[in-house]
Design a binder for these strands. Structure first.
Lengths: 214, 214
DNA sequence: CCGGATCCGGGTTGATACTG
DNA sequence: CAGTATCAACCCGGATCCGG
């Protein structure tokens, strides 16, 4: 392991986390939970498979990741964060918060994954009518499908197609983030290409009332 | 600039901050404030001068650092964080907090600088007797000299020799951190080689009552 | 399909020397 | 003081291959 050799806790943290891809692997395990090697590759478009294998070994040696040979019917290796690894959530959140303004720039070639919405959803959204029955909004952006659920004061995100949705939003990732962060109204977003089917109220239930400043 | 090309705020942040040395340069500018190229080099032992020049250019292009040609009598270039750069403090603090447990491991070859104590001081120490007149403790560790001042409920660190000190602590960086974090008592530290001259109460005024868990 | 290992070309890093 | 220039070594990304 290459080290900065500085007796400073920031440098020590970066000795372990500072290499390329390492913190993004942690992001994946925070957003997806325990998952397979192949799921990690899907969530890290652009990574070379040898680098993913290397990093997972290093993270395991550092006590951040543990691997588990899942029994049948899964019959595969699962990678999960240890407690020490889960303690990196504040680091990932701080980075994501700081990086949020960079999301407004146009980025044509960027890849997108639905579960990356986990962090923005937790930062921007809230259940504004906690006493009403739960509602779900299906999100379709860049061929990814996810579901935002509002229930009893909590807003959660999960990936995959819901069995039932009160509303379906189809849009680009950029427009979606503008709307979720409250910087663009639904009406304006619709003019720019977002489509909303079903209950508009189900979407408005979770949106911020004013643009969220991060 | 190499990019992950992922439409995710964490990846966007790491596009800008993820290269080797970049976040340590930010740490330096947070801890030292505006400073000269040479001061940065002193605070970043191990960095190659061409890398420092490269990173400063990149940070300037990203709007994180700005350079200012200071007028006489300074007559030199000063580097300082922009507002956007100062907004990285939560990132540095989160990394430093997570990295703190790594400081207990023995690290024989590590370099140390007095101003790196800024973060631990703000995390661990508090003025336990805010109504008493201010006191200062001179810290001598690994040929670096710094001063911890307790005044009116606030604890601050500065580097350099104080004009007057109520106490003088001479020790190794490791022992010092153990004491400041409350994991080792003064008595035990003294047995292990720490020396305390002057007012023991001046040191105890700022120490935590119990080991700080981070 | 899963979880990698291996090989290779090119880019990045780090040490040293040097300069206006 | 604030950097450039140079160069060897290393790391990264892409492609390919391989044992379960």
């Amino acid at each position: 392991m290459r080290s900065y050799r500085q007796y400073c806790s920031v440098a020590k943290a970066l000795d372990v986390l500072g290499e390329r891809w390492t913190l993004l692997i942690v992001r994946e395990l925070l957003a997806q939970g325990a998952c397979r090697y192949t799921d990690l590759r899907r969530g890290l478009p652009g990574i070379a498979t040898n680098l993913l294998a290397d990093r997972l070994r290093e993270l395991e040696a550092a006590g951040i990741v543990e691997r588990e040979d899942a029994p049948p019917p899964v019959a595969t290796t699962l990678f999960r964060l240890t407690e020490r690894g889960a303690a990196l959530e504040p680091v990932i959140r701080a980075l994501g918060r700081w990086g949020t303004p960079l999301m407004r720039a146009d980025a044509p070639g960027d890849r997108f994954r639905g579960h990356w919405l986990t962090l923005p959803v937790s930062m921007f959204l809230a259940d504004r009518t906690p006493h009403e029955p739960s509602t779900t909004v299906e999100i379709r952006a860049a061929d990814e499908i996810a579901v935002i659920e509002a229930a009893a004061g909590a807003v959660t995100l999960r990936t995959g197609v819901p069995s039932r949705a009160d509303a379906v939003v189809t849009t680009s990732p950029q427009l979606l983030l503008s709307v979720l962060s409250g910087h663009m109204g639904i009406q304006e977003a619709t003019r720019r290409g977002l489509t909303l089917q079903g209950s508009r109220a189900a979407l408005e239930r979770v949106l911020p009332e004013a643009p969220v400043t991060v």
